[in-house]
Design a binder for these strands. Structure first.
Lengths: 336, 336
DNA sequence: ACATCCGATGACAACGTAGTCATTGACTCG
DNA sequence: CGAGTCAATGACTACGTTGTCATCGGATGT
C-alpha cells in the first residue's frame, strides 16, 4: 500500500480507503489509486488485514480420514459448498488412520486461526481426539460421536438406516438375516451392528451366530457366508460399502444360491450391478453442510449447549433384496 | 505472548525465544515460560509470524471442478498427501462449472498469500482461466493444458491411453471401433477423441460415422449405438467414466448383441460389473503429487522454463473386451 | 583490582494493514 | 468579514510476532 500510495501521490491510508471502498475519497483520487494498483499489481494482504482488524480469518479446517473415499469426498463437497456460501475458505487434511497426524492437523489449523474445526476421522480414538481438541476453537464432529457429548456433532442415522434395511427384508419374508460388518474399531461399525440387533429384536428375529464383525478378508467372509448358508440365512446386510464390495466379490466368485443383500452406503454403480444392489444411502453432503450450519450457529452464539444432529438415510430398493424362495410376491416388483 | 511474559515474569521476546526453541535461554526460564503457556493456553499466531518473518504461508490452493467426483477426489488426495510431506497446508475450492467462481477462488487464495496454485477445473475456458491467473503466484495446471504452454502443467496421457484401448481391441480382432465421448467443451474430451482418431489411422481402421461427442443423454447414446450396430461396429471406447456409465446403462436396458467395451477412467466397481469392464486407468493421485512436485521445483527455481508432465495411464484388461464373434475365444489373456 | 568476555535478557522497530484523530481548505451563513 | 461546517486527507499507532542491538551481571584472565 505504501508503494501504491507513492505511485498515486497519496497517503497509504487513502489507498486503504480505496481498497476497502470506504466513503469520503474524491472520485479522481480513487481513479488515481486504482490505476496505481493496477500498474503495480497490488493485492491486499488478507493476513495482515485480519491481524489489524482482529477479525476472523473466514476459514474453517476440515480433518478427514482419507479424502479419496466416496463418502469423505461427498462430505467434503458438502462442507465446501456451504462454507463458500458464507464466504469462507476451506482447509483440508487427511489423518490416514494416524491419530498423531490428526492432532498435528488440528494444531496447524488452530495456529492459522481457523474460525472452526470440522473433525471426521473415524479411526482415531475418541479419547485421543477430544483430548487434542483446542478448547478455544469451536469444533463439530462429523460421523462420529463426541465422547461425552460435550461437542457439537453430526451423525448419520446409522441405527435407523440399518433398521430400515432389516425391516425391508423382514417385510419381504426373510426370517434369518445376517450382518456383515467392518472392523469393530470403527464406531459406525459398532453402531450399525447395534442397530441391526435392535431391529431384529423388534421383529422377533434371532441373531445368534449371524453377526460377523472384523477385517474384511476374503477368508473371514467366506467362512461367515458358508456358516450362514448352513444356518439357513436368506439375507445379508452389509455395514458399509467396503463390506458390501467384499461380499459382492465373494458372491461373484462362487456359485450356489445367492442371499438377498442390502448394503449400507450407496455405491456409484449400484444400479449397474447384477443384480442391482439395494442400499441404504447416506447423505454425505448433507452431513457436511449440516456440520457447517452447526458451526456457524455456534460462532454466532457461543453459549449454545452442545447439539447433536442426525441426518436421515434413505433406503434405495433395487433388485438384490427379493423375497426368499417360496415367499409371496413383494409389492414393488417381483423377482425370480 | 505479552500475557505469557507477564505470567512468567519475563519479557515478551523471551517468550518468543522459548516458542521458537531459540538457544540462549536458561532452562529454568524455559520451564517458567512453558508453564505459563500451558496455563494460559497460548498458541502462536502463525499469520502474524509469517507477516513479521516475511516467510511464505506454507500453504497451497487447489481449484477443482467438483470435489465429489472420484477423479478429483483421488487427485486431491494425491495433492494433499504430497503437500503434507512438505509441511504445507492445502486450501481447496470447487468452481462447479462457473468461471467467475473459479476466478474468485484464485483471487481469494492469492490474497491469503498461498505459495502456489493448482488449477484443475476443466469446464472453465482457457482464455478466461489464464487471464485470471495472478502473474506473481506460481501456478500449475492439472489435467488441462496451458493455453500457450506458458505455465507448468500436468496432464494424463489421454491420447496414449485411448490408443492403448484401440490397440487392445484391434489386436483382439476388432476392425470397426466406435468412440463415445462427453461434451466437446471438455478439453480432455477433444483430446481423447483425437487420440482415438490417431490410433485408428495408425491401424488403418475407418472412423467415418463412428465418433459421437456431446451431452450424455440416453437419446443420443441410443441413437449412436443403434447406428453403429447397423454399421457393423463390434467395439466401443468410451471417453470418460460418465460416458462409460451412460453406455453401460444403455446396454443394461436393452437386449441384443453387446459390443466389446473399453472405458477411459477406472470405475470403483469395474470388476464387479457383468461383464467386468476393461478400463484405461488414470493415475489421479499421481497427477496430484506430480503437480505438487512441479510447484515446489518452481518455488525453488522460479526461472525454470514452463514444463509439461504427462502421467501415463494403465490398461486394465477385464472381460468386457473379448474378440468379436467369430474370432478365437480368449479365456483371460490370449489375443486374437 | 581491573579489563574483558559471555550468557541471558529486554527494549525497540518493523512486517502490511486499518482505526482514530487531527489537519487542511473550501464553502456557507448571519 | 469572521465563525462555523464539512468533505478530503494524512499522521500516528496497534494488531502479534521476530530480527537487531543494547544492557546487565557474573565469571575469567592477568
Amino acid at each position: 500500500m505504501v508503494d501504491v500510495a507513492r505511485a498515486a501521490g497519496t497517503s497509504q491510508k487513502t489507498v486503504s480507503r480505496v481498497v476497502n471502498a470506504e466513503p469520503g475519497v474524491r472520485p479522481e483520487t480513487i481513479e488515481r489509486v486504482q490505476r496505481a494498483i493496477a500498474e503495480l499489481g497490488f493485492r491486499r494482504h488478507d493476513g495482515a488485514s485480519h491481524l489489524r482488524r482482529g477479525t476472523s480469518t473466514a476459514s474453517i479446517g476440515l480433518v478427514l480420514e482419507d479424502l479419496a473415499g466416496p463418502f469423505y469426498a461427498a462430505l467434503t463437497a458438502g462442507v465446501e459448498r456451504r462454507a463458500r456460501e458464507h464466504g469462507y475458505l476451506l482447509l483440508t487434511g487427511s489423518a490416514d488412520g494416524d491419530a498423531e497426524r490428526a492432532g498435528r492437523l488440528v494444531q496447524a489449523f488452530a495456529a492459522r486461526r481457523v474460525d472452526g474445526l470440522l473433525i471426521a476421522p473415524n479411526l482415531v480414538g475418541d479419547e485421543v481426539l477430544t483430548a487434542n481438541l483446542p478448547p478455544d476453537v469451536p469444533a463439530v464432529l462429523l460421523d462420529r460421536p463426541s465422547a461425552d457429548h460435550g461437542t457439537d456433532e453430526v451423525l448419520s442415522d446409522n441405527a435407523g438406516g440399518i433398521a430400515s434395511a432389516v425391516h425391508h427384508l423382514a417385510e419381504r419374508g426373510h426370517r434369518s438375516i445376517a450382518y456383515l460388518g467392518d472392523d469393530e474399531r470403527f464406531w459406525t461399525s459398532r453402531q450399525r451392528r447395534d442397530g441391526y440387533l435392535a431391529a431384529c429384536a423388534e421383529r422377533g428375529l434371532g441373531t445368534d451366530g449371524l453377526v460377523s464383525l472384523g477385517a474384511l478378508t476374503p477368508e473371514r467372509i467366506a467362512a461367515a457366508v458358508s456358516g450362514w448358508a448352513a444356518a439357513g440365512v436368506t439375507a445379508v446386510v452389509t455395514g458399509n460399502n467396503r463390506a458390501s464390495v467384499a461380499l459382492l466379490h465373494h458372491l461373484h466368485e462362487r456359485t450356489g444360491p445367492r442371499p438377498a443383500h442390502v448394503g449400507f452406503d450407496e455405491l456409484d454403480l449400484a444400479d449397474l450391478l447384477d443384480p442391482p444392489l439395494t442400499t441404504v444411502a447416506q447423505d454425505a453432503a448433507g452431513i457436511g453442510s449440516a456440520a457447517v450450519d452447526l458451526l456457524f450457529e455456534r460462532l454466532a452464539t457461543p453459549t449454545l449447549p452442545p447439539r447433536s444432529v442426525v441426518v436421515p438415510t434413505r433406503l434405495v430398493v433395487r433388485r438384490s433384496s427379493p423375497p426368499p424362495d417360496g415367499a409371496s410376491a413383494p409389492p414393488v416388483r417381483n423377482d425370480r
